[in-house]
Design a binder for these strands. Structure first.
Ligand SMILES: [Mn+2]
Ligand SMILES: [Mn+2]
Ligand SMILES: [Zn+2]
Ligand SMILES: [Zn+2]
Lengths: 146, 146
DNA sequence: GTTGCGCCTTAGAATCATTCCAATTCGTTG
DNA sequence: CAACGAATTGGAATGATTCTAAGGCGCAAC
């Protein structure tokens, strides 16, 4: 199988979401987004750069950083941080937690029932108004997947 | 009122916990720990350095980093990270979440019922064994407290 | 009470992800 | 086509943290 569909339109309206923010759709932005959707293993900017370069040899690391920031700004991907390590990027938009495997360094998505997020928010004392909650597990995963 | 009790023994067995790990109690380690206990506002290493220097002018930033790491290793303080910002340090040992105020940059402790932590852990799929959960809220705090 | 030895501290260099900058290129509009 | 701002690029700069090498200090054995 090939690595990427050559001319497939993007699953969602990438161009649309960009336009909504007054931004242009560029080959670099499309490819960076495509790479994130294709292999959802929470790659770092460097890893995205490595995956993107073969298809667009002229792209620069600075541009990868720019594209990633743009995608985050447009709410197309989430930036995920774990203990000062390099930022990772996640195209999974529905609320979820992350499990960081200490043994392999891999980051896994953990789906949580929305009610749990609600219960967490409900615990905030008066005066605290959260517009985001982040949940991270750390430990060992015995899964034989990936 | 004075900033620090001059010769007060530390609230908990700092020397003891250090000894348990085969480490010595030093003036630097005691002072760094004291500073964390005295003002529990989740200071960064730089901020700890600034608070410690007046009382121990010869101390170096490297030593502050060393002491903080030692205290974390001995489970006397927690390291708290938020979005690639500098690591902050928290002497509150009971499980709790953090609220990061976007407006002021302040970090607040949020106590959560242990049952909530348990419910979160219970959501982990089979094969995932977490030995730590981290919960961070981000938003605005309207509290008039510090 | 000296010596030996390992733990600690220290200053400064090195690291590394990320950001900044200035210059060029590209797209779109007039 | 000409003009203009948006986007990309390579390289320099940043900033928190870590590393390194060199001294100092505390404690135990002699
Ligand atoms: Mn990165
Ligand atoms: Mn710091
Ligand atoms: Zn994710
Ligand atoms: Zn705390």
């Amino acid at each position: 199988m090939s690595t990427h569909a050559q001319h497939a339109p993007h699953p969602t309206g990438l161009a649309q979401k960009l336009a909504d923010s007054g931004l242009r759709s560029t080959p670099q932005r499309e490819l960076v987004y495509d790479v994130l959707l294709t292999k959802r293993d929470h790659p770092t900017a460097d890893e995205v750069f490595a995956r993107v370069k073969p298809e667009l040899p002229g792209i620069s690391l600075a541009t990868v950083y720019n594209c990633l920031e743009t995608l985050v700004q447009c709410d197309l991907v989430r930036a995920v941080n774990f203990e000062r390590g390099p930022t990772r990027y996640c195209p999974n938009l529905c609320p979820h937690a992350h499990f960081h495997d200490e043994a392999t360094g891999q980051t896994h998505d953990i789906d949580l029932p929305p009610v749990l997020f609600a219960k967490l928010r409900a615990e905030l004392p008066a005066g605290f108004d959260a517009n985001a909650v982040e949940i991270t597990f750390r430990g060992k995963a015995k899964t034989s997947s990936n």
